[in-house]
Design a protein around this nucleic acid. Structure first.
Lengths: 151, 151
DNA sequence: CTATCTGCAAATCTTTTGCAACGGA
DNA sequence: TCCGTTGCAAAAGATTTGCAGATAG
C-alpha cells in the first residue's frame, strides 16, 4: 500500500485519454490523467513544475513517473515540448499552439500566435525545402520594457 | 607541475585575444587561446566537443576550465551560444552569424543567413516591441530529404 | 492472472563551486 | 610579489535505468 497511495482523480470518467491509451494497448492510470491535467492547468511547464502540480493532488507520485508519462503523452500526440533557452524542456498541450518569446533581460515568456511565423515558414519551404516546426523552439531577444530600461 | 603541463600553443603571438583580455585586466593563458581556437575550428560545438578538441593539443586542460572560458569568451563578445534543441548549448564565433536549422528526423544542423529572419524581426519589433536575437535559438523542423523519405 | 506501470534507489550526465596550488604581468 | 586562473574533487541539478512490487484489464 505504500505505492500509489492517495492517487486518484475526483471521478475518473471514461476520458479521451483512456480511449487513446487503450487503442494502443496501454493502460489508463490516475497518474497519467493527473500529469495531463497538470500540463493543461499550467499552460506550459517544466517536468519539475508538472511534478509539483501533480503532487498537490497525489503526493506519492514520483518525478520518474512524470518524466515517463510526459514522454508517453508526447508520443501519443497529446502534449509537446519546446526548448525555451537554457536547458529545461517545457511541456504544453499539443492543441494549444503558439510561439514562445523569451526575454534575455527579465526571463519573461510570452506566447504569440503561430501565424507570425507563416512568412518565414513559407520562405524556408520554398527556398530550402525545410518544413518548419513552428512551436518547437522559442525565439529570444529583449522585450519592450527591458529595451527601455537598458538604453 | 601537475597543473597546466604540456599546455602551450605553437607560438603565442601578441594576439587580439591578449589585447581584449588586458583591456579588462584579465590574463592571457594558453587555455584561453586554445578554447577560442577550438570554437573557430569546430564552427559550432558543445562544451564537451570543445574540450575534446582542446585536449588534442593539451590533454591536461580540464572541462571545468572549458566551461569557465566559454563563459568568459562570451562575456567578451568573442563567442556566442545558441540552443539547438535538446539541451546542449552550442558555441560558435560571434562574427560568424547565422541561424541554425535543426532537422528532427536526421539531426542535421544547417546554417542559413540571418536575413531570412528579417521579416519576422521587423514584425516582432513593430507589433510587440520585441527585439529579436536572431542567432540565439535554432529553428527546428524536417529537412527536405527527411520529408521525402517520410511520406 | 498477467503484462503493464509505478515507486524507489541508484546510476548517468551535464554544469557549477570551493579551494589550494600555479603562473602571468 | 600579487592576484587572476587552473585543476581537482566534490556538489548540485536534471534525467534515465533496473528492479521488485502494485494494479489495470
Amino acid at each position: 500500500m505504500s505505492q500509489a497511495q492517495e492517487v486518484g482523480t475526483s471521478a475518473t470518467p471514461a476520458t479521451a485519454l483512456r480511449r487513446t491509451l487503450h487503442e494502443r494497448g496501454l493502460r489508463m492510470t490516475p497518474q497519467r490523467q493527473l500529469v495531463l491535467d497538470a500540463v493543461r492547468q499550467l499552460g506550459h511547464a517544466t517536468p519539475e513544475q508538472v511534478c509539483t502540480q501533480v503532487q498537490r493532488a497525489a503526493p506519492a507520485v514520483n518525478i520518474t513517473t512524470v518524466y515517463r508519462t510526459l514522454d508517453l503523452l508526447e508520443r501519443l500526440g497529446l502534449v509537446r515540448h519546446t526548448h525555451l533557452g537554457h536547458g529545461a524542456p517545457n511541456y504544453s498541450e499539443h492543441q494549444h499552439e503558439h510561439v514562445h518569446l523569451v526575454c534575455h533581460g527579465c526571463g519573461t515568456v510570452t506566447e504569440v500566435p503561430t501565424d507570425l511565423m507563416d512568412g518565414l515558414a513559407d520562405r524556408l519551404d520554398r527556398e530550402r525545402g525545410f518544413e518548419l516546426d513552428v512551436t518547437h523552439v522559442a525565439l529570444s531577444g529583449l522585450c519592450r520594457s527591458c529595451r527601455e530600461s537598458q538604453q
